[in-house]
């Protein structure tokens, strides 16, 4: 069977599905000043599991928008303008949907896979843990 460490190198998804892996990657991203991308990624997963009939869900959608998309955060910088417009319009019309952040999450995930994930696997934080 795969050890946790073997799983971490398999994909970003397997790294983030492991508690120690996600924790260590978060520490790395804090140092690189881009931890917002990871929090946004988890927020999207959490949002998808929320009950659309619950009034809290709209408030969470607004909070995600305000904190990560309608700002100059690293998340907003990495998203395509059309993706941000789509989410803004949904929030404005109060039309929330479980999949409304999916495209944005995919864009952030792709960008994490291209750069910070690769850097993490050669970082001292990772190597010391190994």
């Amino acid at each position: 069977p795969d050890s946790p460490l073997a799983r971490w190198t398999k994909s970003l998804h397997s790294l983030l599905g492991d508690q120690d892996g996600a924790h260590l990657f978060r520490t790395f991203l804090e140092r690189e000043k881009c931890v917002d991308t990871l929090d946004f990624w988890f927020a999207c997963n959490g949002f998808r599991q929320m009950d659309l009939k619950d009034t809290k869900t709209l408030r969470v959608a607004k909070a995600i928008y305000k904190r990560y998309i309608d700002t100059s955060s690293i998340v907003a910088k990495q998203l395509k303008p059309a993706t941000k417009t789509f989410i803004r319009d949904n929030i404005k019309k109060q039309q929330i949907d479980s999949a409304m952040f999916d495209q944005a999450q995919t864009e952030i995930q792709t960008s994490m896979e291209e750069s910070p994930y690769q850097m993490f696997l050669t970082s001292d934080i990772y190597l010391e843990y190994v």
Partner: peptide, 20 residues
């Protein structure tokens, strides 16, 4: 009532992997 920040934090935490 929870503040928006609290709700967001709970949402993030709910999606994080649990102890193996």
């Amino acid at each position: 009532m929870d503040s928006e920040d609290d709700l967001l934090q709970k949402c993030i935490t709910s999606a994080m992997p649990k102890q193996r």
